[in-house]
Design a protein around this nucleic acid. Structure first.
Length: 574
RNA sequence: CGGGGCGUAGCGCAGCCUGGUUAGCGCGCCUGCCUUGGGAGCAGGAGGCCGGAGGUUCGAAUCCUCUCGCCCCGACCA
């Protein structure tokens, strides 16, 4: 491929529409162009990078025993009605009608279609397990598409579905996929964590999200600095501390705190730390007001609270001041657990606190020297708060870190949710008809490219690892008008092509500076420069994009050197 | 869906508040000269329904109304 013929529209300046670095660079380096909000054309360089990721995904999925197929993108509504998701899925499901006025949707995912396929074609346990996947454009009508390829309405996804005869088999399949995912993201050169995306309450955890660590990530995750423990904020377990043994309990003391309502203000006034105070929040849970006790410096994790109460977090919200007063008879800011008539849920940490401060349920008064058990007893107690960096790892006790992540993959043990809904059954070895046990496994292929750029770039542009860079090498002919230089550049280009190296020849009639800048921006891993030093000393320069490491070598050795460098760079990730 | 911002040449922007010749600037593009190891220089040139519709006015990029699009924060989603 000659640069002069390729569509690589690079930009000197950042486009105003882009906010995050991957979006800016994808546009500037000529990888993508926007058609409309959330949908992008993949230009030759962008598509090449996506194809590289797809190929790695294919190889690892196949290695793990999965088979590739391709399902229709337009799906009939009746299948979705059968699973119940036509109603449940909501506005993200884009719906359309055909000329006969029959309803369809564009597939945001394919559980229905694959389950339909399997129920029609697999009837015996002897045919199980089976694991199928596809790589396809998905459509989700996102409320707010953003950050370029990071969250589009149209994106390329690998979605896989497994069908097992037994729970144990399904777990084995799940583990195989988890392993395959580790290999895939490692080969893509990503720094990532597989995070626990399940509360783990019953029978271990069967959902993991693969998060690429990057500041621009939309999710917050907790990772352990010492071991491999990592979890979603909503799922991260707070280690329950030990109660102090040797602290004498004080008497409860009523103190006037005029006009002091906020935690910080009360603490400043009483000369205590927020960790010595217990705040009382009121939630409205399905029309019932419930008090929630939390240490002053902690925050409620809604999902955990909802789980403890056994409700959906959608049925739960913070009360406003009026609702709070109606429920407790006390204005906000002076609430406390003592004497409250409504249900009280305490964070598990409260039990470890001694002689703390709470509101007195009386305007302008607080109580000090309060202790749980002696002075009040909560209706319920449990882990309902957000983890903090001060917490310790539940797995190893190591230090935790809160960091941002980009979700590039999600694996999930589905169980029989869809097989039951769609009556997808097989005969087991006893001749009993039972539903398939399913798992599903997704990878945001186009998002992987964006995430990789978030992790691999510098001020000059993209520097993707060889494994997923659009091409491996770029030959710069610095003087297309110089016959000798052009001949050498052409020679190297031809030899590399014959050696099956993906290579672009920059044959443009541009000044050297432009070629160097573009080479850095596009992020081709190996740059081979034929210019002045060739005319003078017969030397060719080979430079590695990732670290700028440069070697000068004679023409005769160039191709061998480049191949060697590419192989070494590839081997590091394989 | 709530809040905020922006639509002027391919890209980045100025002009708008305070209406008034032919709508500017930088980059890019085309032609020529010159230059050739990190986005050169000179000269000439092309390119605009000032997002769209309606209104106010003698006169609208500029003021008003409506509308469409894009971006950000949040909600939502995963």
């Amino acid at each position: 491929m000659r640069f002069s013929q390729l569509l690589i529209p690079t930009l000197k300046e950042d486009p105003s529409e882009a906010e995050v670095v991957s979006h800016k660079l994808l546009l500037r380096a000529g990888y993508i162009r926007k058609l409309t909000s959330g949908s992008y054309t993949y230009l030759p360089m962008g598509l090449a990078a996506i194809r590289k990721v797809e190929q790695i995904v294919r190889e690892e999925m196949n290695r793990a025993g999965a088979q590739e197929l391709l399902m229709p993108m337009v799906q009939p509504a009746d299948l979705w009605q059968e699973s119940g998701r036509w109603q449940e899925y909501g506005k993200e499901l884009i719906r359309l009608k055909d000329r006969h006025n029959r309803a369809f949707c564009l597939g945001p995912t394919h559980e229905e279609v694959i389950t339909d396929l399997i129920r029609k074609n697999i009837h015996s346990y002897r045919q199980l397990p089976i694991n199928l996947y596809q790589i396809q454009t998905k459509y989700r009508d996102e409320a707010r598409p953003r950050f370029g390829l990071m969250r589009g309405r149209e994106f390329i996804m690998k979605d896989g579905y497994s069908f097992d005869a037994t729970d144990q088999g399904a777990e084995e399949t799940y583990e195989k996929m988890k392993y395959a995912y580790h290999r895939i993201f490692s080969r893509c050169g990503l720094t990532f964590r597989a995070v626990d995306a399940d509360s783990g309450s019953i029978g271990g955890s069967f959902s993991h999200e693969f998060m690429v660590l990057a500041d621009t990530g939309e999710d917050t995750i907790v990772v352990c600095k010492s071991c491999s423990y990592a979890a979603n904020m909503e799922k991260a377990i707070c280690q329950k501390g030990n109660a102090p043994q040797d602290i004498a309990l004080k008497e409860v003391e009523r103190i006037e705190t005029p006009g002091k309502r906020k935690v910080k203000v009360v603490c400043d006034f009483l000369q205590i730390k927020p960790s010595e105070l217990v705040k009382t929040l009121v939630y409205i849970v399905k029309d019932e007001a419930i008090a929630v006790l939390l240490r002053g410096d902690h925050g409620v994790e809604d999902i955990k609270l909802a789980n403890l109460l056994g409700v959906s977090d959608e049925d739960m919200r913070l009360a406003d001041d009026k609702e709070l007063f109606d429920a407790t008879g006390t204005p906000s800011g002076y609430l406390g657990p003592m004497g409250l008539k409504i249900r009280v849920v305490a964070d598990q940490e409260i039990g470890n606190m001694r002689n703390f401060t709470v509101g007195a349920n009386e305007k302008n008064f607080h109580l000090q020297g309060v202790n749980m058990g002696r002075d009040f007893t909560p209706t319920l107690s449990g882990d309902i708060r957000k983890v903090t960096a001060e917490d310790r790892c539940v797995a190893c006790g190591g230090k935790l870190e809160l960091t941002k992540g980009i979700e590039v993959g999600h694996i999930f043990k589905l169980g029989t949710k869809y097989s039951e809904a769609l009556k997808a059954t097989f005969l087991d070895d006893q001749g009993d008809e039972i539903p398939f046990i399913m798992g599903c496994y997704g990878i945001g292929v186009s998002r992987v490219v964006a995430a990789a750029i978030e992790q691999h770039h510098d001020k000059d542009g993209i520097k993707l690892p060889v494994a997923i860079a659009p091409v491996q090498a770029l030959v710069l002919n610095l003087s297309p008008k110089d016959e000798e230089i052009s001949k050498a550049a052409q020679d190297i280009y031809g030899q590399l092509q014959r050696s099956h190296i993906e290579v672009i020849l920059d044959d443009r009639d541009e000044r050297p500076g432009i070629k160097f800048k573009d080479a850095d921006l596009i992020g081709i891993p190996f740059r081979i420069t034929v210019g002045k030093s060739f005319s003078k000393e017969g030397m060719i320069e080979v430079r590695r994009r990732t670290d700028g490491e440069t070697v000068s070598i004679p023409l005769a050795d160039t191709v061998a050197t480049v191949m060697d460098l590419i192989n070494k760079a590839g081997a590091e990730l394989a």
